[in-house]
Design a protein around this nucleic acid. Sequence first.
RNA 1: GCCCCCGUGGUCUAGCGGUUAGGACAUCGCCCUUUCAAGGCGUCGGCAGGAGUUCGACUCUCCUCGGGGGUGCCA
Length: 489
Amino acid sequence: MNKQIRVRYAPSPTGHIHIGNARSALFNYLFARHNNGVLVMRLDDTDRRRSTDEAIKTMLQDIQWLGIDWDEGYLKGGDYGPYRQTERMDLYNHYIDILLSEEKAYELYYTEEEIHSLRDSYEKEGKKFSYRELKEKETEQLRNAFKNKNLKPAIVFKVEKDEEIIINDLVRGNVAFNSNEFKDFVIRRENGTPVYNYATVIDDALMKITHIIRAEEHLSNTPKQLFIFNALNFPPPQFAHISLILAPDRTKLSKRHGATSVGQYREMGFLPEALFNYLALLGWSSKDDREFFTKEELINLFTLESVNKAPAVFDIDKLKWMNHHYISKADDERICRLALPYMIEKKWIKEDSNCSLKLLNTVNAVKGNMETIKDIIKVAAPFFEEIDLVKTEEEQRILKQGESKIVFSYLIGKLQNIEFTEGELDKFINELKTALKLPGKKIYHPMRIALIGSKSGPELTKIMLILGKERVIDRFSKALNESFPGTNL
RNA sequence: GCCCCCGUGGUCUAGCGGUUAGGACAUCGCCCUUUCAAGGCGUCGGCAGGAGUUCGACUCUCCUCGGGGGUGCCA
């Protein structure tokens, strides 16, 4: 009885998916899946210069990497294609003809340059500029001169006066405009290409889109689109305008704020499910206090009603916290594979290395201490490089405290005869406290600093297993000699 | 300028006329501990301001202020 819900994601393929766009895609995806609807992927590529095939490819890869797939549209096909605007020119032109014949639009015999300078001079004189006025002043002579120069007129849509227009927005409620606030606007350029506000209407109508979920920046132009829906007798869809994602300085997130694209976050070592989860929480929340959701849970819980109206600041610290959580939970094999490039770059391992058992063990030991995959180069360094023993004053102090001498001496003596297996080492480490009669802190802190140069890190057993007997004893000896020169065993 | 949207701690948010204004990230601190992490506990900190309406406003109305968006032959 209810008609099939159809939403669309219509990016302009400029190469990279902006975080804000990704969030729009995400909400469309969640909404479609939640309602058993269809997500259509359409390419708004009328701006041909920017829309290279390469750009389209990277863009779609980023979307898929994030975990968003679509049911219909570009690369998938469907009943309402083609799904690239550049391939739909006949359609746009067809409806232009209708508009023209019904006198709901008109041809403008001025070139773009002429319009520019006219607009400037009008504004200089403080007068309002409008296409309508220009059209009224247009003469037969002008038209002929224009045609003789082999120029094509732009097409302008006629905005009717005194129309009240109300957008019933699913997140904002009723938003009212008066048509007098809008002037006639171009819908097809001199060069024959349609303008966004026009093409999007034709596409949305023909593709039977039922809900348009997009960023708030489009809200003010929605009346223009509604005028066209009405003029062509297309039933208008429902709208839902979600608010913008802001940078910490509360302005629109842009390049000068650093990383703004999905691809950049991937390169920085974020996991797709972390970004997915975080983005979903930017402007939407479930009624309980949960923060971690699987994709399925999100699909289950997502509704437009619980989308927040206020804009949200993108907080990379919270993203990192979330990423840390997902990395800790992820399996070693995956993290290792993702970390491989970073380790290769550090020349820790060979170019064509795979995840050996040893690497897997290392990853297993350190993954709880990573915020991003890239952190592997920090947290795994003690296993691949000789460490710099003296770090902070505090660490130095710990190494030099009297008990440390006892600890190191004991370790160096005993370890020689310990078999380096998990069971043996566990047992050995557990017995240290009783053997040395020292508080845990006095034992384990210096040990860790001697082994990895920091008092925080993976479990001692894991560290020692990975380093191996020789290096462990070597590092303890080094710590002993440096902190207590002249000590003889 | 005009039009539109928004305004709960530094940040993300819950709240939908009566709450000690709840949770999360970050900060700082404590506890626990076989270190660290994790976990547990706590500190700091908020309804932009002003008028109404009401017995009672974070919640409703209006104004002001602040932020954002639109006003292109960009999308």
